[in-house]
């Protein structure tokens, strides 16, 4: 008989990472204040991890803890996403008053353009193409 525990963990891990990317971007772009969603993510994350201590099976305990820990990280990631928007590394949503303020600030780097939505240069060619849109620094955490 097949052992399905690993498959469930894989699904939980992948969905956790997917939400950490797509969901956090979506939530940050629509929240006028990131503190409230961050608090909600922290509460759900702690709740899932507490439940995992008493879950009836390893599969349920593992899935709850994996999702719980990724949600805790996502609360922190909301603030990192906010920094990316300020730096222009993620698109600002002009309908969000917080983002509108970033866009209107003097010397703002914020932009509504999604700079990551493009094809990379061909790595098998010499040199490749340095794209415009970068702000010159290296080893960022984005």
């Amino acid at each position: 008989m097949l052992q399905l525990t690993g498959l469930w963990m894989a699904i939980a891990t992948f969905l956790g990472i997917w939400w950490g990317h797509v969901g956090v971007r979506w939530l940050e772009a629509r929240s006028a204040d990131v503190r409230r969603p961050a608090l909600a993510l922290i509460s759900i994350g702690i709740g899932l991890n507490l439940y995992s201590l008493f879950a009836p099976s390893l599969t349920i305990a593992g899935v709850c803890s994996i999702i719980g820990i990724t949600l805790l990280w996502d609360a922190f990631e909301l603030y990192r996403q906010q920094r990316r928007v300020i730096k222009g590394h993620a698109p600002a949503n002009p309908a969000n008053p917080r983002h509108a303020a970033y866009l209107a600030a003097p010397d703002s780097h914020a932009t509504t353009a999604d700079l990551l939505k493009r094809e990379p240069s061909d790595p098998t060619g010499f040199g490749g193409t340095q794209m415009s849109g970068g702000i010159g620094h290296t080893a960022s955490s984005d």
Binding site: L4, M9, A10, T13, T59
Partner: peptide, 22 residues
């Protein structure tokens, strides 16, 4: 991970696998 008898090792393989897919 589907063919490992122990649930714990199966879980670790599944998590590592999903991380590489991502």
């Amino acid at each position: 991970s589907l063919f490992v008898g122990d649930a714990g090792w199966s879980a670790l393989l599944g998590i590592a696998g999903a991380s590489f897919v991502w």
